[in-house]
């Protein structure tokens, strides 16, 4: 269970780990926006290179990205089928059983696959290098202005951090219950369909029961210590913007600027002929 790599914090101490979570969130959004622009391939390649460097810097294993992509194969396949059926422009690449396959359909699918890969890489970099708690502090910071319109910024941040805090606990719990039921003959891998369904029930019900119990205990414990969601509170850890963050901000701005120039005025950076 614990070997789930997607979205897991990696306890290293790299330059990216030390960056301010607020900056990392901005940078992530900026990069995501870039990735989802209709980009010429050369710019896509440049973005991919930047992201690869970031992955290496944050010590995320490239293989783990591909592992989490495995789950996406099916989705990409479905998209491919839809594209092949719906997109009928461009040149005919080849025909299968008299059915013409257009280049545009394949290209479109490839673009989506690349975007998904880059998107997963970007979000993985953020979650792998930022402690969940810091992440919610960052989110809370951006939500705070919304308090003016009575948006419950703190409550939402608290809910998110509790949820994040309990993900590993739930996984542990799931593993424990799975093992207990496996000791009673549950076989989720083999077994007939009916056995599998029974096994899943044997897993889910205890999980629900203990989650409800846990949340009630947590709520009581918080109340017993005088938690008041609308109270004003200070923090043990405060977020500070360091020199490193400034460097990061400049680099990100330059990258984003380059990407947008490449889209709207490619001649300016001398790649006009390539687009």
């Amino acid at each position: 269970m614990k070997n789930i790599t997607l979205g897991r914090y990696l306890p290293y101490d790299t330059w990216i780990h030390r960056l301010d979570p607020r900056f990392k969130i901005i940078a992530m959004i900026a990069l995501l926006v870039c990735v989802f622009q209709p980009l010429p391939w050369i710019v896509n390649g440049f973005l991919a290179l930047v992201i690869l460097v970031l992955l290496l810097m944050s010590r995320v294993k490239i293989s783990s990205i591909f592992k989490s992509l495995k789950a996406m194969w099916f989705m990409i396949l479905v998209i491919l089928i839809f594209n092949v059926i719906l997109i009928r422009t461009g040149e005919v690449l080849f025909t299968i059983f008299d059915y013409p396959i257009y280049t545009k359909a394949l290209l479109q699918t490839a673009t989506i696959a690349v975007r998904l890969t880059l998107m997963i890489s970007i979000t993985t970099i953020l979650t792998a290098t930022t402690r969940p708690l810091d992440l919610t502090y960052g989110l809370e910071f951006f939500m705070t202005p919304l308090k003016v319109i009575k948006f419950p910024a703190h409550e939402i941040a608290m809910t998110i951090s509790i949820a994040l805090r309990f993900i590993p606990t739930l996984l542990e719990e799931t593993e424990k219950i799975m093992k207990a039921q496996a000791s009673r003959g549950v076989d989720l891998k083999g077994g007939t369909f009916k056995q599998k369904i029974n096994g899943i029930i044997a897993l889910i019900i205890p999980l629900f029961v203990s989650s409800f119990q846990r949340s009630e205990e947590l709520a009581n414990a918080m109340e017993a210590r005088g938690y008041n969601p609308s109270g004003k509170r200070t923090r043990y850890r405060t977020l500070k913007f360091h020199a490193g963050d400034l460097v990061g901000l400049i680099v990100t701005t330059v990258i984003v600027a380059l990407v947008f120039i490449a889209i709207y005025n490619p001649a300016l950076i001398g790649i006009g002929g390539l687009v």
Binding site: K176, A180, Q181, I201, A202, P206
Partner: peptide
């Protein structure tokens, strides 16, 4: 029999 086996009842 696990520690706290009561969690396996369902």
């Amino acid at each position: 029999v696990f520690q706290f086996p009561e969690y396996q009842l369902f």
